[in-house]
Design a binder for these strands. Structure first.
Length: 291
DNA sequence: AGCCAAGCGCCTTCGTTTAC
DNA sequence: GTAAACGAAGGCGCTTGGCT
């Protein structure tokens, strides 16, 4: 650090100590967030982000894919961060000017570019868990573009954590990261996965990292409950309890958490079926979630 | 734009109260 | 006994927030 940087760092420290100001640090590439203890077992995760031509899984295409491997220990601490890999891809369709405004990517920048499928599949296949912010958006694009890894377990950093409960407001990636005291230029896939890694490594007052809480949520299997052949007069009770009507398959269904399965079965058998017929409980693991 | 979940406001409906 | 009026409750649709 030279003398000018040193003076700036000092100024930032002073400003940050003032109650009326807050200092935010630019995210910088890192190789680890925690010291790896020797001989401690660890697992591999992959942070992923896609930029696309739009929001429609069926009609739109990936224009940028970024993945970054990381190694984490049993306490959800990121002890090693791999090299980020980023590919652009020509969507072979016109690019909405709004997408260029959002991502900075132009048709010229994408022309003749393509994802290195073998390399991308290799990285994703090595993951024990794939992490994305709003996985329900990214996963369908990735599953379709790289079907070889379509069955991997995914976890969503946006939806699977009760952010309010852990002291945050809102769920937008940049906003969450900002509340940890960091800033970055978003909507570029490579920056977004770095931001995600910073967020995952963030320590909460109770000593746990965001990643630890997220993994804990993700590992709990949840259930999809199909109230098949429920009597017609149970319609109102099912709706009141949060069930939704599947018009194509013609039954009421809802998703529930792990601990709720027994109570739900009892309620269904007594208040809906009354001795005739029974519901179908389908376990949902991280491999099926967010599809 | 597309999708999904949650929240909110408004309107309808129903029931109870009150006034004649 | 009847009609109007008010209040609680439920349902529906609009809005909002996430992702590009």
């Amino acid at each position: 650090m030279n003398a000018v940087d040193d003076r700036h760092a000092h100024a930032a420290e002073l400003l940050g100590a003032h109650p009326d100001f807050r200092v935010q640090r630019r995210l910088m590439p890192v190789t680890a967030f925690h010291e790896a203890a020797p001989l401690v077992p660890s697992r591999i995760g992959v942070a992923i982000d896609v930029e696309t031509t739009g929001l429609n899984h069926d009609a739109d295409r990936i224009i940028e894919l970024a993945v970054q491997r990381f190694r984490f220990d049993a306490r959800g601490r990121i002890i090693q961060v791999g090299t980020p890999r980023v590919w652009r891809e020509d969507p072979a369709m016109p690019l909405d000017p709004r997408i260029t405004m959002l991502t900075g990517l132009t048709e010229e920048a994408l022309a003749d570019q393509a994802i290195d499928e073998a390399a991308a599949v290799d990285i994703l296949a090595s993951a024990e868990i794939i992490v994305a912010h709003n996985a329900a958006f990214d996963r369908p694009f990735v599953d379709r573009r790289l079907p070889a890894v379509a069955g991997k377990p995914w976890v969503c950093s946006m939806a699977e954590l009760d952010w309010l409960e852990v002291g945050f407001e809102g769920r937008a990636l940049a906003h969450l990261v900002s509340q940890c005291g960091w800033f970055y230029e978003g909507h570029r896939a490579e920056n977004d996965i770095l931001a995600l890694l910073y967020l995952l490594s963030h320590g909460l007052p109770d000593g746990e990292t965001i990643l630890a809480k997220l993994i804990a949520c993700s590992e709990q299997p949840t259930w999809r409950v199909n109230a098949v052949d429920a009597p017609f007069d149970a319609k109102g009770r099912l709706k009141a309890r949060g069930y939704r009507w599947d018009a194509a398959l013609r039954f009421w269904w809802k998703s529930i958490g792990q601990g709720e399965a027994d109570a739900e079965r009892i309620w269904l058998l007594t208040d809906v079926y009354g001795g005739y017929g029974e519901p179908v409980f389908i376990p949902v693991t991280a491999c099926e979630r967010h599809r």
